[in-house]
Amino acid sequence: MAKTKVLERKPLTFSEKTYIPQIASGLAATFVNMFKKSVTLEYPEVRPVIPENYRGVPTLVKDPKGRVKCVSCQLCEFVCPPKAIRIKPSEIVDEESDRAHIEKEPAAFDINMLRCIYCGLCQEVCPEEAIFLQDSFSLSGYTREEMVFGKEKLLKLGGTLPDNHFKWDKKKSAEENTEKDH
């Protein structure tokens, strides 16, 4: 058994019994504090600094060329623990030249923010780096329908993130090169 060390409690001195020196030092401490800078962050005007790896609202991002990165593989939909994500895949509708080699895009991409638990598994599982939990942390709405974020809203929230790969450009040029070779 651990040995208990009994500390001797000294009896109060006379000045301590009068409380007055203690009260005076307390008053001095609070008085000094009055002239220090306030630590308040005045919230709606001043926003807190959000760390890089913060898990805020899930959003869809575009690449620097303005293309939607999601290819509606539905991995996020399957991994989502509270089943907040619903995706309706479709073929690429308009055959733009720069999107020709992408196979699919989401026709509808809904995240029910009333179900979302901000776990970030969708971001982790996404092979295209198309869904990110970014720095937006305060969302509100008047109705339940309003809290189901559609594709447009998610893209608007997500904005554009830098892309290191340009996977589909590489695929396109690779295909064109092979076509040339043949």
Binding site: N33, M34, S38, V39
Partner: peptide
């Protein structure tokens, strides 16, 4: 106000 100053609030 004094309370907020002492507690370093606004």
């Amino acid at each position: 106000k004094v309370c907020s100053l002492i507690q370093r609030r606004v």
